[in-house]
Structures are given as C-alpha cells and as structure tokens.
Design a protein around this nucleic acid. Structure first.
Length: 311
DNA sequence: AATCTAACCTAATCAAATA
DNA sequence: TATTTGATTAGGTTAGATT
C-alpha cells in the first residue's frame, strides 16, 4: 500500500523511525482487538502484523500507547462522571511472551561497541546494527534500553534532546567494503510502505524501488521482524475465547480478523478490508541470506576501525 | 496554532537461561 | 539458588501529521 500514507514522497529524515500513519481499516482492527484484549501476546501480535501488514513492533507500540490513552481517558472520565472505562476487561490469562532472544557473544560484541560509541542510536544506526547482527531492529532497541538501564553512564540531558534532536550530520555507520546502500542503512520505511524513497540519516535520499518493508527488514537478511530463527509454531495463544476458539493455521489470512469482527460490534465500514484482499504477508520476502560466519567475523573485524556514530 | 498520536524514553518488574 | 539479561509494563516526553 501507499507509504503508509505519508503523503509526501520525500520526507525530512529525522533520527526517529518514520512515523507510521495507520489506515482506518488498520486502526479499526486494532481497536477491535484492543477491546477484546489489551494485552495481546506475541502470537497474536504477529498474526495481526501479518494480516494488517504492520510490523509487529509497531503493533506492540500501538498497544502500549493505546493502553496509556485508555487509562488516561478512563481516569479522566471517572473523575467526572463515571463514563464507562476501558471495560474491555474480561480478565484473560496472559498470552505468551516473545520467546527470549539469545544473543551470541559475537552479536553482543557488536552491540557493545556500538553502545560505547552511542548509547542512543537512532533508527538508522539501529537498523544497521540489525543488519550486522542479524537481530531484529526491535530487539536491538530493547537491548539498548536494557543496557542503558543497567549500565548507567552519563545520560542524555533531556529526553530526546541531544542526540535525536541534533543528529550528527552523518551518523550512519559505514562498513568498509560494503557496497553503496548497504553502508548507509537507509531508514526503514514503515512496513508495507512500498517505500520508494529511502531516507538517509544525513538527509539525503535514495530511491530504491519498491518492496515490502518489514520493519528493519528492508535490507536485513536474517529476519523480518520475527526471524525464522525464532519463530515458533505458537498456537494463537488465548486471545479471548472468541478469538482463539478456532484459527486455522493456514486458512485465509482474514479468518482471524473475521472472527474478531464477528465477535465485536464493529461497523462494517471500519473493516472493509475483510471482504477485500488482505495484504499478502509472510512473503518471506526477497531477503538476503543471513551473513555467513565468515562475513560476520570479517565485519566484526572491520568494526574495530570503522567509524561508529559518535555521541 | 492546536490537537492527536506514533515513536521513544525511563524505571520497575517478570522470567528464561545459566553459572 | 543466585545472577544475568531479554521481554514487558506504566507512564512520561517528543515530534510528525492532521485539523
């Protein structure tokens, strides 16, 4: 679909990931699911990710934000009258978490080097690291969060101030020897964006054609948000009785959402996509093969004298 | 300009892997 | 069993898109 609706084809490149603008259909589906279960587990999130063509990490963030909004609103409401709060809440057994990612010593080594250079990597750097390590960008983001929390160093003066607000002219990492685009790690377009305009952290842009971007997987060979190396045949862990009552593993992609909506009093027009085609997903994508051990070690070696983004 | 909300952050905590 | 560390949460801030 369209660049997730960033109506401009060339965006100013910030250090954040490009903001995703949800379509109404996507919004509607998320809302509906949220009513069913505001704490979806990894299986549900991934399923949604496939069917709505939104990266799983964005789904997770959306639910986080939505819970905050909901809470704020319900507090506000209960302060006045008591407007029905979230009430989405038939308690549900928590769904399964993401399987713990195991990060190898060599991957850790790369991350540590990056961390020493910059504790607050921007999206371009994170995606570059994702490429180098073969880990999903979202896991790298979490790794940095945990690392910062556990190894407090000098912290950034104000949230988002120094680094993100004033990114170095060219914070992207250049890997010697890597041909062109690889070195620059363009910002990943929001998933499904068919992003034609790739932004570079230094503000330049590059058109690299179309393709299903999958959060950090634009160039990332080893994974698309949820890498195969970790994927588990997770039954749709109990979302709600309604939702998980049946889900044919390989049935039409829409089945899950159809069930969702049939169980929810959603207006038809909020989910017209149900009748139409769902974005084909799971396209394992024309992703490259993961780095071989040899390449990996070579890159590791190169890192020693490569230029990491500085703080 | 104001509003909305995705993206990002910290701090606290849970939980899996391992010494 | 204790420790380490990846995953998740609540809740706050920033900034891009929309009104």
């Amino acid at each position: 679909m369209a660049p997730t609706s960033t109506s401009r084809s060339f965006l100013p490149c910030g250090s954040r990931r490009r903001r995703l603008v949800l379509k109404q259909t996507q919004q509607g589906a998320l809302q509906a699911l949220f009513q069913q279960n505001p704490y979806p587990g990894i299986a549900t999130r991934e399923r949604l990710a496939r069917e709505l063509d939104i990266p799983e990490s964005r789904i997770q963030v959306w639910f986080q934000n939505q819970r905050t909004r909901q809470l704020r609103q319900s507090r506000l409401g209960s302060a006045k009258s008591h407007r029905e709060g979230p009430s989405h809440g038939q308690e549900q057994p928590p769904e399964g978490r993401r399987k713990r990612t195991s990060i190898s010593p060599s991957q850790t080594s790369i991350l540590l080097q990056a961390f020493e250079k910059n504790r607050f990597p921007n999206i371009a750097t994170r995606e570059h690291l994702a490429r180098l390590t073969g880990l999903p960008e979202s896991r790298i983001q979490v790794w940095f969060q945990n690392r910062r929390a556990r190894h407090p160093g000098q912290r950034r003066s104000g949230p988002m101030k120094d680094l993100e607000a004033h990114p170095k002219p060219s914070p992207h990492v250049t890997v010697p020897g890597e041909p062109g685009p690889l070195a620059g790690v363009p910002e990943a377009g929001p998933s499904g964006s068919n992003c034609t305009a790739q932004c570079w952290s230094d503000g330049s842009q590059l058109v690299i054609g179309t393709g299903q971007a999958q959060d950090g997987a634009v160039l990332q060979p080893a994974h698309a948000e949820t890498p195969g190396w970790q994927q588990q045949a997770h039954p749709t862990a109990g979302l709600s009785a309604v939702l998980n009552s049946q889900h044919q593993p390989s049935a039409e992609a829409s089945s899950f959402l159809e069930e969702l909506f049939s169980a929810t009093d959603m207006e038809e027009d909020t989910h017209p996509f149900l009748s139409g085609r769902l974005p084909q997903e799971d396209a394992p994508g024309p992703l490259e093969a993961p780095l071989s051990e040899e390449e990996f070690q070579a890159l590791l070696a190169m890192l020693h004298d490569s230029t990491w983004p500085q703080d």
